Simulated assay, not measured.
Amino acid sequence: MTTTDGTTSLTDNQELSSVAEAPPALPDPQVQPTMTVPQAGRYLGLQKAASYNAARRGEIPTISVGRRLLVPTAKLRALLGIDTATTDAAA
């Protein structure tokens, strides 16, 4: 779109498409008790490799089930300060 002074501006659709989408809300631990490491990393703004590196360092809580490395949803929510009641009950 060209303005009256000859400069170009973004249309509403262009502005909206440039905004990064936020990840969906963290699931309820009763509904989805675990998630994969990359899924958990998305909530932290991490890419796949960075997520696995953080999990290896212990910065993301994980459990091993067979050969799978999973993140307990309740612990991730507590880490992010979303469920303070869960944190208090575990202490």
Rank of each mutant, 00 (worst) to 15 (best):
V65N: 01
L69R: 13
T4V: 09
A25G: 05
S51Q: 10
T73M: 05
A85P: 06
T8N: 00
L70W: 05
I82N: 11
S9Y: 14
E21N: 00
E59A: 06
A54D: 00
S51Y: 04
L26E: 10
Y52I: 06
L69A: 02
R42S: 15
I60W: 02
I63S: 06
A74L: 11
A40I: 04
R42W: 04
T11N: 14
P61R: 04
Q39K: 15
P72C: 01
Q30D: 08
S9M: 12
G45H: 13
L26S: 02
G66L: 03
R57I: 01
R77L: 10
P33C: 08
A85Y: 14
D5R: 10
A91M: 00
A20M: 12
A55D: 05
R56D: 15
R57V: 00
P29L: 00
T87K: 07
V19S: 06
S51P: 14
P33T: 03
Q14H: 12
A54H: 08
L44K: 08
P33W: 05
T87C: 07
Q47V: 13
D28I: 00
I60H: 02
P29N: 07
D5K: 12
T62L: 07
L10G: 05
A91K: 10
K75P: 01
G66I: 02
L79N: 04
T36A: 05
R68D: 13
G45D: 12
S51L: 10
G58D: 01
K48E: 07
K48V: 07
A89M: 13
P38C: 11
D12C: 00
T62W: 03
L80N: 01
E15D: 00
A25R: 11
K75A: 15
V65L: 08
L44G: 07
L10Y: 15
A54Q: 11
A22R: 14
M35T: 08
L80A: 06
T2I: 04
Y43R: 11
R68W: 09
T34Y: 12
V71M: 07
M1K: 03
A20F: 10
L69K: 10
T34L: 00
P38W: 03
L80T: 01
V37P: 03
R42Y: 04
P61W: 03
T4A: 15
A74C: 00
L46C: 11
T36H: 02
A78M: 15
A55R: 01
Q32H: 10
D5Y: 08
A50Y: 08
T2G: 03
E59F: 00
T84D: 15
A78L: 02
P72Y: 06
R56V: 12
Q32I: 09
A40W: 01
S64N: 14
A20V: 14
